[in-house]
Amino acid sequence: MPRVILGGEDPWARKRESTQANYAAISNPSTVFHRLDDRRSTEYVRALSELDLGPGVNLAEVVQSIIEKIRAELPDIELSHLPSGIVAKCYLGAPYEVHTLDLSGNIIRHYKTFEPLPEHLEVARSLALHPKYAFIEVYADALRAVMKSGEVAVVKR
């Protein structure tokens, strides 16, 4: 796998651009779904890994910016096929354990240990707590665990 050595261009950027260009022209739904399994960009992973927001941050702006980043990362995916939520490990410290971004309600919320998540997001909790994954995208039919490297692991539901 190519790595960025001493800075420079993201080695996957070109491949991703060409893949996105290819997919933009394809209307086959199964192809679109496979697009979701492709590697995520470094900027996207970084943006979605920084939801540990302290006080004094305008949440509405943050949510809007994240939604824009998701749209930019997956431009060829219809709104109905985008994730319904994001779950990630919370680094605010005890008693907080995970936080969620519910894209249907545009809300970021932090949850304490043993505090249940909304039903459609609870399934992603165990994965979100695993140190290997930066965050989990929750879809109607699958979970996509995004690693810090941008690689995506798919768990069918």
């Binding site: 992603a124 994965l127 665990a145 690689e151 995506v152 692991a153 768990v155």
Partner: peptide, 17 residues
């Protein structure tokens, strides 16, 4: 690699906390 990542994430998601 992809299949291994998927299988691994699969049981990690299923392992009861």
């Amino acid at each position: 690699q992809r299949a291994h990542a998927n299988v691994t994430a699969g049981y990690r998601a299923q392992c009861p906390r």
